[in-house]
Design a protein around this nucleic acid. Structure first.
Lengths: 247, 247
DNA sequence: CAGTGGTCTAGACCACACT
DNA sequence: GTGTGGTCTAGACCACTGC
């Protein structure tokens, strides 16, 4: 064997290798949908055995950062060439048939530069007053407005994002973030509550103000646990439900 | 190496081992909180290498069926000796401090034998009219009623469960199921909606009927994907939120 | 100290994809 | 066939636990 690198604080070799691969992903050495070097190549590069590289890749694949394909190679996960339309959205039609209802209709209501309020700044790890992009849109299924969401993006990484870019783009929003801005969302946290809409919200969703709605506040993170998106959604749960699996 | 057993349809050896261990868990060969045989012993028993047993155990540990403890052994997961009070409940106080608010106060409203309605029977894999146990209770945090839940259990496995057993028992309900009835919940699915309470529900939770609530319908499964519990909860989300992590 | 799980290696062979 | 990931083995050594 060989010490792959200096070992300041102890950690298993495969964890160190995992960290090195993660670095390369962050630096963009391999881009989404591309293949990373084979296990043997990486083993030589890092001076460890193939099995050690394997264990590192196993964990990264379990985290959905890499995708293994037997006989072909290991690829950087991507939102762009994906069958599922939505990465994190867990709203399912009551009959469970997502194919019948087809893709959502999207309507951008607003997309403007703002200065971050205190709470937006806090969750995006910015300072109050830093430039942010604010987007508001409605998603409809079968011509029924179902989701009203408002999202904030840090101004720096998303410089140049406009309402046109958003509405012209076919495919998931996270795929656009990836291809156009090099920002890949890796994981997210959601806080869910039941709320009643205010008058503006109820008119945009075309429901009574007495209609209870799911309030879903999502913070999405890129590599390194860096928050890159705050999204506040109101979901109409008359014909859909939020599905969760626990284990 | 050696074929551990006949191999009717092909699958990796470690998957077969995983299945054999799962069987032993179901049959109760090793009970919750007990240690299973060491990796070496299992390797001898199944006539495979230690590494193969290891991979099987790794997956079972990832599924929360087993718990590894270095230097001590591998143990059957249990709800009984657990720090966390709740296995599947993801309702978090707004300030995030679960210790401050302490354990919930529990009040059993009702516990009676019933005949399964059509929809209860369907999710519990019973026939309509089969005996089921119906329990209704309220959980309060800091003297504020927060959760109203109704749950149905199949009558067979839970024969002998009474309101007294439930209210006398200290600790998580799933721990009682485990120790008294040998039923261990392994995973669950939830369907979440926003709703308004009816008049009975609002009075039990001591809220207005106009207060939106989270409706959480949970189906919990034991080994083998056998449904063992249907739980319908109404959560008050004024001072708590439902937390979910996506990846 | 002995026994457990945890890491790491080196090598063999299998399953799959492309050419 | 060649190259990829996937499985399996055997053996060495490390880290932790408890006697």
């Amino acid at each position: 064997m060989a010490g792959a690198l200096n070992t300041p604080a102890f950690s298993p070799l495969y964890q160190q290798i995992k960290g090195l691969i993660l670095n390369s992903l962050q630096q963009g050495e391999w881009k989404p949908s591309e293949a990373i070097p084979s296990e043997m190549e990486l083993a030589v590069r890092f001076r460890v055995s193939q099995g050690t590289v394997r264990k590192a890749i196993d964990e990264l694949a379990a985290d959905n950062l890499l995708v293994r394909r037997q006989g072909k190679g290991t690829f950087v996960a991507t939102h762009a060439e994906q069958q599922v339309q939505y990465r994190f959205l867990k709203l399912i039609p009551d009959d469970g048939d997502t194919k019948r209802e087809g893709p959502a209709q999207r309507r951008i209501i607003d997309c403007k530069r703002q200065r971050a309020t205190a709470d937006v700044a806090r969750t995006l790890a910015l300072r109050t007053g830093d430039p942010v992009l604010q987007v508001q849109r409605v998603l409809s299924f079968a011509d029924t407005p179902t989701i009203l969401e408002e999202l904030w993006l840090p101004g720096g990484p998303f410089k140049g994002l406009t309402a046109e870019r958003l509405s012209d783009y076919r495919g998931p929003m996270y795929a656009l973030f990836e291809t156009e801005f090099g920002v890949r969302m890796v994981r997210a946290e959601e806080k869910i509550r039941a709320v009643l809409p205010d008058s503006l919200q109820s008119s945009l969703l075309k429901v009574e103000q007495s209609t209870p709605l799911l309030s879903v506040e999502r913070t999405a993170y890129t590599y390194n646990d860096t928050p890159m998106e705050l999204r506040r959604g109101l979901y109409l749960t008359d014909t859909h439900y939020y599905r969760n699996e626990l284990s």
